[in-house]
């Protein structure tokens, strides 16, 4: 045997020789295996090209014009000058109350959404309810709630409870119900099944399994997500007043429309500071809840 001289066994060598002899035929019969790198290259060049062309097409469709951009930038420059110095001009108290209202809307909206989504999320989790129709239905319900923007929800709730912050809180609750449902059910599905099995083995009922096997595992994750959404909802709640659903957005719209830019700048600064403070508090709380290693 000459296996010592070549590492390839005679069988494999025979295969290789036949393959090399039939190279043209193979190329013809399996074009995919040979053309892959060329296709990849074409993809790498073609995709950005298509994206750029699409962008230019979009600009043409949407009436972009350099003249308008130039004039607009000029006007923005004027605005920036008019914004300095930011000053409340005697409305500091009114702004503070509106900001408080904004925080209240965000807080209540997030909390309501979380409380409503928590039980429904179990229905959408495959490892709790194996029935495909139930969790498919629950998932699609969440999708529908999620895909309607907060401002659209606000417009609809205004029809029911009238103008004001209550409609805003309900709008945030609805939009976040969908988002929470999705995230919570994913968190539930990612749990370790051993704890549940252990409880089942010691004679626990289905309810016991959920209460003592699942809930302790998902609660920290859920708490962290709720805090994170509270942060982002403070931002959403600042704009919900644009359609008349309470909070600081009403002032913002009015002041921008009448070009009271000093007050606008002051109000935006107030919002930025509030958001920064809330972010700070909530990230501290999140760290306390789940520990720094698992920060999302």
């Amino acid at each position: 045997m000459n296996t010592a001289s070549t590492a390839i066994s005679p069988g494999k060598r025979a295969i290789r020789e036949t393959a090399l002899a039939d190279l043209d035929g193979l190329r013809r019969r399996h074009p995919g295996a040979f053309a892959k790198s060329a296709m990849r290259r074409a993809f790498m060049i073609g995709l950005p090209l298509v994206m750029v062309l699409l962008a230019f097409g979009a600009m043409v469709w949407l009436d972009f014009s350099l003249v308008r951009i130039w004039n607009g930038l000029h006007r923005l420059g004027q605005f920036a000058v008019l914004m300095i110095p930011p000053a409340p001009e005697g409305r500091f108290m009114a702004f503070s109350i509106a900001l408080g209202e904004t925080l209240a809307i965000a807080f209540l909206g997030t909390l309501t959404a979380a409380i409503l989504a928590f039980p429904v999320a179990f229905l959408a989790a495959k490892n709790v309810i194996p029935n495909i129709f139930v969790h498919f239905g629950a998932r699609r319900t969440f999708d529908v709630f999620r895909s309607v923007d907060t401002l659209i929800w606000a417009l609809m709730w205004i029809n029911v409870v009238g103008l004001g912050p209550f409609a805003g809180a309900l709008a945030i609750a609805c939009a976040d119900f969908g988002a929470f449902g999705k995230l919570f059910s994913e968190a539930i599905e990612a749990t370790d099944g051993k704890a549940t099995e252990g409880i089942a083995a010691s004679g626990g009922s289905k309810a016991h399994q959920v209460r003592f096997g699942l809930v302790p595992q998902v609660l920290p994750v859920i708490a962290s997500q709720v805090l994170y959404f509270f942060e982002s909802n403070v931002r959403s709640a600042t704009i919900i007043g644009i359609v008349g659903a309470g909070g600081v957005g009403a002032y913002l719209t009015e002041l921008i429309r009448v070009l009271e830019l000093k007050q606008v700048a002051f109000l935006i600064l107030m919002i930025l500071v509030t958001v920064a403070v809330i972010d700070f508090i909530s990230s501290k709380l999140r760290m306390a809840v789940i520990g720094k290693s698992k920060m999302v």
């Binding site: 308008r68 607009g72 006007r75 923005l76 605005f79 704009i239 644009i242 921008i256 958001v275």
Partner: peptide, 21 residues
Amino acid sequence: RTVPDIVFALIFVIAFGLGPM
């Protein structure tokens, strides 16, 4: 990212005119 996009839109509508731009 902290100033909501719709606030920018409010200002830009006045600066650049109404429309998708």
